[in-house]
């Protein structure tokens, strides 16, 4: 059982996400581009997370299953990154410090190994959140 330990999450753009978004948010490209968490290798070892396995990310406002990878655009230990988009916004806190801009970067999360959990599609997450998702 790996310990729980607080990481600092940021969610920003990536060119892969931009391309996939223009192909379409229901496309496999968007699914592959956005459902990953980029981490520092030391943190992954500390948390007992194997590369390219699924993890559960939990914040004050929600949780999401994403795939853990070692960040190519490296993050320092303690920092992690999910590309902006549907998966990131499952955990982004809506607090805005009275400016209108939510806390997209710099919020505490826990990351736990969850290899048995399945990744959800963008539609499943968003329609599911508003009670519209129907299994086909």
């Amino acid at each position: 059982m790996a310990e729980k330990y607080i990481l600092n999450m940021i969610t920003q753009r990536a060119v892969e996400e931009g391309i996939a978004m223009e192909i379409g948010k229901t496309s496999p490209e968007y699914f592959d581009a956005c459902n990953i968490i980029e981490m520092n290798e030391q943190d992954m070892k500390k948390l007992g997370i194997l590369k390219n396995t699924n993890v559960r990310v939990t914040s004050e406002s929600g949780q999401v299953i994403v795939k853990a990878v070692v960040a190519r655009q490296t993050v320092y230990p303690g920092l992690c990154h999910i590309r902006q988009g549907v998966w990131a916004n499952q955990v982004v806190p809506p607090r805005t410090q009275s400016t209108g801009a939510p806390q997209y970067s710099g919020f505490p999360v826990t990351v736990e190994s969850a290899p048995e959990e399945k990744l959800k599609t963008a539609l499943q997450l968003v329609q599911g959140a508003v009670g519209m998702w129907k299994e086909v």
Binding site: Q84, P94, P102, V126, V130
Partner: peptide, 12 residues
């Protein structure tokens, strides 16, 4: 696309 880019509690 507010559905994808707003924090999900705001979408709800």
């Amino acid at each position: 696309d507010a559905g994808a880019h707003f924090p999900i509690p705001a979408v709800q």
